[in-house]
Nucleic acid binder design. Structure first.
Length: 314
RNA sequence: GGGGGAAUUCCCGAGUGGCCAAAGGGGACAGACUGUAAAUCUGCUGUCUACGACUUCGGUGGUUCGAAUCCACCUUCCCCCA
């Protein structure tokens, strides 16, 4: 087992930022954001990145460090975040990972080794072209021949993963099934204590999200999106795929209204929260704290401390 | 006041006598997830004592072996003329 770290997880708008800061102050820790969209600059409002005031003097890492024109990846994120964590540990402080991007968080804690190959690599481009020319069927057949397990596991419509599976084989000579089996044998890099935040009632979660969206609008979300576009961020950029941004593009093009865009943001955020919960639910190590009505951070800090003490943290 | 059109399962919307518990989309719910992950993909969605039965297509009453589909009347909504 590696060194002890704390992870605060939960769906969007569940109060992770608040608890993360409270824990950091209580334990002398620093926050590492594990969020696929907060890494981009100029997206503070829509990604609900912690403001200076919310940070309360606690050092925060991995926020607004990338240009929104570039594309990040799990592997890149995990590498940078791991550097941050190591640095915090070397300084004798407690790393507190706060974030909603499940894949990223798991990759960091487990120390996942990703197979080579990137989105804009030659192999991927080649496969992409073949997909456009020939359709998915021949590619899936090819995968069946080299990695029947993966071919059986993946749905024919899951083009993204089929291409990736073929890519891994071409880049490494090893099937993705084999690669995954190998990486799963690697012991976790960190000894993580997980605290999960969630609303007891789904409806309460929805209300909370709707409230947050209207606050974002009041803080100038529309202008934020406009500014990104004005600075040359293409609509196809990963950053503009973020919820809160892509839904406002039609309104900015005059094809829809801001009101409709905001309603769409609320809807997509609720659906996203649901997916986050699906991801988190399969991690039995998470110590859940459920909000009955609205967040009660004092109580949450008490429960968290109790749990962390039992786990030997602090 | 006259004329025309429409009412379908949570929503939108197909369906015009049997192959309809009813296409398709959305939403909801559940799940997956190893270099785009706030992304991508899958399943499921009338009820039940479930390889069968029962109740649904605005309401009531008819026609028919059989109706969401045909007829009559009623209710509501929309459009046109006045």
């Amino acid at each position: 087992m590696g060194e002890k770290i704390v992870c605060v997880v939960g769906p969007t708008a569940s109060g992770k930022t608040g608890l993360g800061v409270a824990l950091a102050k209580r334990y002398g820790g620093e926050v590492v954001s594990v969020d696929s969209m907060q890494i981009y600059r100029g997206m503070a409002i829509g990604t609900a990145a912690p403001t200076e005031e919310e940070q309360q003097g606690v050092p925060h890492h991995m926020i607004a460090i990338a240009d929104p024109r570039e594309s990040f990846s799990v592997a890149r994120f995990a590498a940078l975040a791991t550097d941050c964590i190591e640095d915090i540990l070397h300084r004798g402080r407690l790393p507190i990972l706060v974030g909603g991007t499940g894949l990223y968080l798991d990759a960091i804690v487990r120390g996942t080794v990703f197979a080579p190959g990137t989105q804009d690599g030659a192999v991927r481009r080649d496969l992409q072209e073949r997909l456009e020319r020939e359709g998915i069927a021949p590619l899936l057949d090819e995968l069946s021949a080299i990695d029947p397990a993966a071919a059986a596991r993946l749905a024919p419509a899951d083009e993204k993963r089929i291409l990736r599976a073929l890519e891994v084989y071409r880049e490494t000579g090893t099937t993705i099934t084999e690669h995954n089996a190998q990486t799963q044998k690697i012991p976790p890099r960190y000894d993580a204590s997980y605290l999960g935040l969630a609303f007891r009632e789904r409806e309460e979660q929805r209300r909370r999200i709707a409230l947050r969206v209207s606050q974002m609008a009041a803080e100038g979300l529309v202008d934020e999106v406009r500014a990104l576009l004005a600075s040359g961020v293409p609509e196809s950029a990963t950053a503009l795929q973020a919820i809160g941004y892509k839904e406002l593009l039609p309104a900015l093009r005059g094809e829809s209204t801001v009101e409709e865009g905001l309603a769409d943001i609320t809807l997509r955020s609720c659906q996203y929260a649901k997916r986050q919960l699906t991801w988190l639910r399969r991690n039995p190590a998470i110590h859940w704290i459920f909000w009955e009505k609205s967040p009660d951070f004092e109580e949450a800090l008490r429960l968290s401390t109790e749990f962390l003490t039992a786990r030997g943290v602090g």
